[in-house]
Amino acid sequence: MSSELLDALNILEKEKGISRDVLIDAIEAALVSAYRRNFNQAQNVRIDLNLETGSMRVFARKEVVDQVFDPRLEISLEDARRINPNYQVEDVVEMEVTPKDFGRIAAQTAKQVVTQRVREAERGIIYSEFIDREEDIMTGIVQRLDSKFIYVSLGKIEALLPVNEQMPNERYKPHDRIKVFITKVEKTTKGPQIFVSRTHPGLLKRLFEIEVPEIYDGTVEIKSVAREAGDRSKISVHSDNPEVDPVGSCVGPKGTRVQAIVNELKGEKIDIVKWSEDPVVFVANSLSPSKVLDVIVSENEKATTVVVPDYQLSLAIGKRGQNARLAAKLSAWKIDIKSETEAREIGIYPREEMIKLFDDQDKDDFEYDEEME
Score class of each variant (00 low, 15 high):
A159L: 06
S233G: 00
T304K: 01
M372C: 00
A316N: 10
S298E: 12
I150Q: 06
I355Q: 11
D7H: 13
T219D: 08
V64E: 03
D25V: 01
T256W: 12
A107R: 09
L357A: 10
K274G: 08
L5D: 15
D132H: 08
S33C: 04
E299K: 07
S76Y: 14
L6E: 15
V273N: 05
S298F: 14
S339T: 11
D132K: 05
P71S: 06
K16A: 13
N169M: 09
Q43F: 03
K223G: 00
L145T: 13
I337M: 06
F195P: 07
V258A: 03
G155Y: 04
I215S: 11
V292Q: 04
S76M: 10
V244R: 11
L77P: 01
V307H: 01
A106C: 12
V92K: 03
G17V: 04
K356H: 02
D359S: 15
A303H: 13
E186A: 12
V92Q: 09
R325S: 12
D176G: 13
F195I: 09
E370S: 05
S239I: 01
N50C: 11
L49S: 10
V251A: 02
T189H: 13
Q67G: 02
D294P: 04
K269A: 11
L315H: 12
Q88M: 14
V113S: 13
E342G: 07
R46N: 04
R72W: 03
M167H: 15
I210Q: 15
D271V: 06
I18K: 02
L49M: 12
K269T: 06
T199F: 02
V258M: 08
L12D: 02
N84Y: 11
K100P: 09
G321K: 05
I125P: 04
Y151Q: 01
P350F: 02
S249W: 08
G255S: 13
A26C: 00
A332R: 04
L160S: 12
E74P: 04
P71I: 00
A30R: 03
D240C: 02
A284F: 05
A324V: 10
V212M: 09
G230I: 00
P162Y: 15
S339I: 10
R177T: 02
I346E: 09
P99N: 08
S236E: 03
A226S: 01
E129S: 05
I47K: 03
I335D: 02
E158V: 07
Q108L: 08
E158Y: 06
V237E: 01
E74T: 00
K266P: 09
K14H: 07
V280C: 06
A316I: 06
I131F: 03
R123D: 14
S288A: 14
A328W: 11
A106I: 07
T188W: 15
L326T: 08
E243S: 10
R177Y: 11
Y87H: 05
Q193C: 10
L357Q: 15
V307S: 07
D70S: 02
A327E: 03
M354L: 05
S249K: 05
I194D: 15
E129G: 03
